[in-house]
Computed example of a mutant assay.
Amino acid sequence: MSNPATVIAAGGVVWREYRGARQVLLVHRPRYDDWSLPKGKLTANEHVLLAAQREIEEETGERAILGPPLGVQRYAIRKNGSTAEKLVHYWSAVPVRESSFQPNDEVDEIAWLPVDKARIRLSYPRDVDIVDALEGAVPVVASLVLVRHADAVKRKDWDGKDTLRPLSRVGEGVAERLADVLGALGVDRVISSDAERCVSTVAPYAGGIERHIHLWPEISERGYDADPDGLRGLAERAWKPGKVTVVCSHRPVLPALSRELGLKVGKFATGSFVVAHRLADGRLVHERFGAL
C-alpha cells in the first residue's frame, strides 16, 4: 500500500504589544485537551497564505495580516489507517480588528499570554520553537511583494501596441486570486509598470481597497529597454516605511529590478511573486511563491 499524501496545513503566531509586553494568542482544543497555535489544513486549491489567515480567523475570531514566515513544522500523523507526514507553515500575524471569538467544538477557549507564559502553557515543544522564532522576525519596517504579471494574450495573437496587450482569461482569473493573497498580506500601496498586462494584474486588488495604482514606466519592458539605468534609486521609493507595497513588472525586467530592491534574483513564472520584509535590525527576509 502506498503512503498517504503529505498533509499541508498553515497557521500563525498572532501577537500584540500590550502594556509594554508582547503577548501571543493560544487556542485550547477540547478534543485533545491541549493548548496550541491556531492552524489548520488547506482546503482544495487554497493558497497557503489564505489558509493561514482563514484558520486564524476561524479558530480565534481575529482577522489578521500575515508578516514574516516563522518556520515549518514536520511531524507524523495517522491518516487512513497509516502514517503520513504533516507540514504546517507558520507566519507572524497581527490582528486588525476586535476578536469575534465564540467557543465551539473545535476551540472552546483562547488566551492572550505574555511570551514567557505562553511558552509554558503550550502543549508541544514544536509550538514553543515557532513562538521563539517570532523574536527574530519582528518588528517589520517595510514589506514588499514583487510579482510578475499574470498570463497575457500571446504577442502573435495581438495586433495592437504591446503596451496595450491584455491578460488572457487565465490571467484574469489569476489576478482575481492574487487580490485575495495581497489582502492577506495587508498590501496598502500598489505600483505597476504602465503596460496593460501589469496594471490588470493588480487592478482587482487596487479597486477592492480603493487605492490608486502608481504607474512606473521605467519598470516596463519598453522603459527598461530604453534606459536600463532608470531602475537606479527605485529601492528607496519602493521600500516605504510602514507600508506593504506590491510592485508588478515583467520577466525581462525582474532580474535587474530584484537586484535593485535587494532581493535574490530568480525565475518568475507568470503570476508568481516574492514576499519580502525589511526588519528593524536591517535584515531582509523573503519567500518565493509559484503561480497562483
Rank of each mutant, 00 (worst) to 15 (best):
R16L: 13
N3V: 12
I65W: 11
V187E: 04
K41T: 08
D227N: 15
L284H: 09
G208R: 15
G171S: 08
A238S: 15
A256V: 06
G173H: 09
S258F: 01
T60V: 01
Q23K: 15
R148D: 08
L185N: 08
L113Y: 08
R283E: 12
W239I: 02
R31C: 04
V190A: 03
V48S: 01
H212C: 06
E287G: 13
M1I: 09
S249Y: 03
R237I: 02
T6G: 00
Y205H: 14
A10F: 05
Y205V: 03
E109G: 02
L146T: 06
D116A: 13
A238I: 15
A256Y: 11
E106V: 15
V202A: 10
A52Q: 02
V190L: 05
Y75C: 01
D159I: 10
L122E: 02
L178T: 07
T270S: 12
P68V: 11
G242Q: 14
S168C: 13
T163N: 12
V13S: 05
N3C: 09
L279K: 01
L37P: 07
V147L: 14
E59M: 14
R155I: 09
A152G: 04
D157T: 06
E57C: 11
C198T: 14
Y90E: 03
E176C: 05
Y18I: 10
R54Q: 01
G208W: 13
E57Y: 12
L66V: 02
D162L: 14
R126V: 07
E287N: 14
I120P: 00
L164P: 04
A238R: 03
K39H: 13
P228Y: 08
L42S: 00
I130N: 09
A10H: 08
G230N: 02
A5I: 04
A203G: 08
A10Q: 11
I209V: 15
A203T: 12
V14K: 06
R148W: 10
F273N: 01
K156R: 14
F273A: 01
R126T: 06
E221S: 12
G290Y: 08
T201H: 04
V24R: 08
L66Q: 03
H214N: 13
V48T: 03
Y224Q: 02
A52C: 06
R74F: 08
V285M: 13
I191T: 02
K154L: 11
A133W: 00
F101M: 06
L144S: 06
D108S: 15
G208S: 13
F268E: 00
W239Q: 07
G61T: 07
L122F: 05
R74H: 12
G233V: 00
W112V: 06
A195V: 06
S36E: 14
T270C: 06
V94N: 04
V13T: 03
K243L: 07
G20A: 07
I110E: 03
H214F: 13
H214D: 15
A21L: 15
V96P: 03
G223I: 05
